[in-house]
Write a protein that binds this DNA or RNA. Structure first.
Length: 278
DNA sequence: CTTGTGTCCTGTAGGC
DNA sequence: TGCCTACAGGACACAA
């Protein structure tokens, strides 16, 4: 479930715990969690490296290492990162990075869909090709109406499916796309090319806005509790969701009597208000 | 190129 | 109570 706001929250919280520390040893507990290189080369390649910075690109968390290395994580749906005491056992742990100072960075992932890669910066393997094709960060200034209009123009796919396309708006997932479309007053199933200029202007603005709000509230922890902060705490943006997970509830917009509907779109649930979204 | 569908993966919720 | 199926969903492979 981690989308841009959740990954950014994890990045900010992990920074003081990781930067400047050295990875003494890496242990892969489940081989298929390593996307590149093969597990043994991964372990030896990580050992001895010092963590220099933490970056984020879309939903990827990038742990910068000395000598130009990068440890790239994708948490997919249920991945979790935490800094724990060296002797602490972690449920569903798939990889562990022992650090100087009796701590360890633990990568847990119950569904085993998440991945970690060890790469040399700017030399990304095929498994990470998607990272090179990624679109602009919606929370950066260059993501404006002109850019979004250019990406949506002439497209017949639904506007929601294009918001989920990382080549269009990286870091956006199911929750924040629904929330952004609600704030923009646009139905998720609208054909992207049918949006009027004013709607695209609104959408570009509220997409950045909802993602920044998500960061401000440390992300969205739904009832399943899958997304957690590195210290085990929860985010609080779920309290501020307008449509996601609110099927059957009344629309929150002042004076609107609409009832939130849920509908399938390309295999995933989509939430909207049939009254204020057109 | 574009669009839609199936697959991966496993814990959990719901039906009977 | 217990078994079984459907579902959750991000990214990618693949078909049309």
């Amino acid at each position: 479930m981690p989308e841009l706001p959740e990954v950014e929250t994890i990045r900010l919280k992990l920074w003081p715990l990781l930067v400047g520390r050295r990875i003494v040893r890496a242990r892969v507990l489940r081989k298929d969690i390593v996307g590149f290189p093969a597990a043994r080369g991964f372990e030896s390649g990580v050992a001895g490296r010092t963590i220099t910075e933490l970056r984020r690109r879309g939903k990827y968390l990038i742990v910068g290492l000395d000598r130009g290395g990068e440890l790239v994580f994708h948490l997919r749906l249920s991945g979790h990162l935490a800094v724990v005491d060296r002797d602490r056992k972690v449920e569903y742990e798939r990889a562990r990075f022992e650090l100087t100072g009796d701590k360890a960075l633990s990568f847990a992932e119950p569904r085993a869909l998440g991945r970690v890669y060890l790469v040399q910066a700017s030399r990304y393997p095929k498994a990470l090709a998607g990272m090179l094709k990624m679109g602009l960060e919606p929370i950066h200034d260059d993501f404006d109406a002109a850019y979004l209009h250019d990406r949506l123009r002439g497209r017949t796919a639904s506007v929601k499916s294009l918001l989920l396309d990382q080549r269009v708006a990286c870091g956006v997932g199911n929750i924040y796309s629904d929330e952004a479309l609600f704030r923009a007053g646009i139905r998720p199933l609208r054909r992207a090319g049918s949006l009027e200029k004013a709607e695209v202007v609104r959408l570009a603005r509220v997409l950045a806005e909802v993602l920044r709000d998500g960061i401000k509230w440390c992300g969205t922890t739904m009832g399943d509790g899958r997304y957690r902060l590195p210290d085990g705490g929860t985010g609080s943006f779920q309290k501020r969701l307008a449509v996601f997970g609110r099927e059957g509830e009344r629309c929150q917009r002042r004076g609107c009597a609409g009832e939130i509907r849920r509908q399938k779109l390309g295999g995933r649930s989509t939430h909207f208000c049939p009254v204020c979204q057109r």
